[in-house]
Each structure stands twice: as C-alpha cells, then as structure tokens.
Design a protein around this nucleic acid. Structure first.
Lengths: 123, 123
DNA sequence: TATTGTTATACTCTATAACTATA
DNA sequence: TATAGTTATAGAGTATAACAATA
C-alpha cells in the first residue's frame, strides 16, 4: 500500500475492487463455485456476479469452467496466480482483523467485507 | 426498518442512499456548507457533490442557495423536513455507535460512514 | 415447471478533464 | 492566476425483467 493511500485505492490499483476481492476471498475459502452460489454468498443478484466475474476473468484472476454434471451452470475457479495472491493478502487482513473497531474504522469503506467475514470466522 | 431488511435498503427505500445520508449528516452537524467544503469533508471530488446534491434537492432534503459574499459558490442547506428527519435518525445511529464492532459488523456496508464519524466524535 | 446464467435497461457513486463565471 | 461548480465522458456496482438452455 502506497503512502497516503486508501485501502480501497490500494486494491483498485490492480483492478481489484472490493466486491471483486470479496469474490476471490470466497473462492479461496470455499473452492470453485457456481455463480448462483456466489450470488447467494455475496447477497447479490446473479446478474451482478456475471459482471464481477467478467471483471476478474480477463485479468486472469479466475476462469469459468463448465459444471461437470449440470450443463446450465458454470464453475468459477481461482487461478493459481490469484490463489497465491489471496494467500498473501490473508496475513495483512488477519492483522486488520485483530485491530479494535476505532482503528480499522478508517478502512471500513475498503475492507469491510473482509473484516466482517474474518470477525465471523474468529468468533 | 422492515423485517429482514438491510440498513442500506432501509435508507434507499426513500431515495436516501448512504452517501446522500452522509451529506445530510454533515449539513445537520456543520450547518449550510459550500459544495467545496462538502467535497473535502466527504473526501470526494467536487463533481460527485454535484451529483449527490442533485439527488437530494428534488426530493426536498436540501436546497441550493447563493453564497452571500462569494458569487462563485453555492450554499447547500438542509430543509426543515430533512433536519427533523436527521434528528430522528440520530438516536438510532447513536445506539449503533455504542455497539461493539462484532455486532455492527453486519451493518457495516450500510452505515459505516455514520458509525465512523460517531466514533470519531465520541473519541 | 423450475433453475442457471445471460442480455437489456436503468440508477447510483466514483473519477479525470475541460470549461464558465467569479475572485 | 486561482477557485467554485458545471458539463462531458468513463468505469464500476447494484437492481428488475425478459429470455434461452437445461434440469
């Protein structure tokens, strides 16, 4: 993260917006998922997932694979590069998760999704 | 707030999105402000403030008034109706501000701006 | 008939750049 | 010259509705 830079800006620098990072986080922790499953997990419409995956796929973060048994569905899979990246971010995010509310409040617009999930996980 | 409804959804029901509510909150606590001042407070470009005020004015939340001494600037002012509404929301927001991080984490996408400001104010 | 993901359409928030009016 | 707010343009996230392919 650059000096004087926001968490959101830091992510956005490489095309990784917060909602897109959230998708990567989900895939990293649950494995390949249908877009339907992602929509449910993100509490967002399926149409949105189309857009998010469209934003992640060209950059090489994820790939769309045909579902082996259901030909209606597609499986969104984390690429190896993205998986490595996710593992790296993990540490930084855990550090944030350990901070009291007042301290990460400034980041709240940026990593709220992640922090929230981590708090759930640690509870 | 309706049952099973998100904080964000609750605000959006009456055209009050989170960034717009944030503008009302600022006006409620600092009084009439120039768009420039709002842009600085919101950490957003002046162009955005134009859009936010455009969204609030037709609904009668705010009005644009000519600045008394600087004819380049416009003063954004809370209408009486909006001021009443802001006062009502205040109580609910203070209750949220008193909650530990884990509890309001679920609302974080919705009232993060407000909670953050309240934490700052209470610190 | 129900479900999966798409296209079509629309609204909001965000940004940079160029422009007008004023200071 | 510098500042306040605008228009122009663009990208991203969100939503509903209608549709094709498949279950």
């Amino acid at each position: 993260m650059l000096l004087g830079e926001d968490m959101t800006q830091s992510l956005a620098r490489d095309g990784l917006t917060v909602p897109r990072a959230h998708v990567l986080w989900l895939l990293h922790h649950t494995g390949p998922s249908t877009q339907r499953a992602l929509a449910a997990a993100l509490k967002v419409t399926p149409r949105n997932v189309t857009g998010l995956v469209d934003g992640l796929a060209p950059a090489g973060f994820v790939t769309r694979q045909p579902h082996p048994s259901d030909r209606r569905a597609t499986l969104v899979t984390l690429t190896e590069v993205a998986a490595m990246d996710a593992a790296h971010r993990e540490l930084a995010e855990l550090l944030i998760a350990g901070m009291p509310a007042a301290q990460y409040a400034g980041f709240v617009g940026g990593v709220a999704h992640v922090v929230e999930r981590l708090h759930e996980a640690l509870r």
